[in-house]
Design a binder for these strands. Sequence first.
DNA 1: ATCAATTAATCAGGGCACTGAGTATTTCGG
DNA 2: CCGAAATACTCAGTGCCCTGATTAATTGAT
Lengths: 154, 154
Amino acid sequence: MAAVDLGIHPGHLARRLQQAHYLLWNTMVSEEITSPQFAVMNALVAEPGLDQRTVGERVGLDRSTIAEVISRLGRRGLLTKERDPQDGRRFLLRLTDDGLRTHRKLTVRTARMNQVFLAPLSPGEQTVFLDLIRRVADAAEGLRSPAEPVAARH
Amino acid sequence: MAAVDLGIHPGHLARRLQQAHYLLWNTMVSEEITSPQFAVMNALVAEPGLDQRTVGERVGLDRSTIAEVISRLGRRGLLTKERDPQDGRRFLLRLTDDGLRTHRKLTVRTARMNQVFLAPLSPGEQTVFLDLIRRVADAAEGLRSPAEPVAARH
DNA sequence: ATCAATTAATCAGGGCACTGAGTATTTCGG
DNA sequence: CCGAAATACTCAGTGCCCTGATTAATTGAT
């Protein structure tokens, strides 16, 4: 019986946490717009005219995923995509009026959902919770690039 | 500027946490076997001969996803699937010798990965971290079924 | 000015996750 | 015993997530 207790495996718990969140989002926020889609819209509210790659960086989505998410948002008429006249490789992204309206509406619901989601924890625990997740996620993300050798250059 | 700070949104952090874990798993544990696949194998080490649905319940995967995961594990010869002679609807699942060997090998690497993953936190914080995630995930999962009325009867 | 690296975006391919609909088998009420 | 309800699994469809390869545009070094 070499089985392990997954209840103490952070990865397994992280997956279950995300699934729980997915479920709650779907019932309390929107069945149309997903959480990653909202994150992208939110980034464009903060900084209109960002290009695809940068948006992905802001919200933590890789190049392929961000392309799909943006294409879906575009199909629904929530954002526009136009070539950067300064740099023909980029597409500049902007929310439409509809996109702005949707973002505003979801912002309210999202706040409510967050309260429900964190309700099992005391206010103090909630703060700790967010802090701990952030620290673990940040640290692991830092491991991505094998510590660029500070570019000694020429 | 109605943009929100996603850094205090537990759902957004949960997604980033899971992505970070995915990355670390891929580099430190296995590029072949994924974390959900390991979870399924682990459930079958603990309880050989479980049916598909129950395995899904144990590891937190829905009926569709568990079917895919099991089909992949079967294709690689890590588990076998045979009809339950007692109940023709079920398939009983068992790890092969190869599956058992693989599980044993990954168990070691998984433990190492967990250490690295949680390294940014002090031992005390690690315990709190796991406890908080578990509580939030459990509570949200409890919201799934609209509170079965405790079946008073007969 | 030109050719080589770099960069933004796309495409192909594999895997996880959910819902709603459909099939086969078992169970239960009358 | 028999038909309805429940159960295990499958299938189709959508969306997120990653990697490796490709294409188009820009930048940089000779």
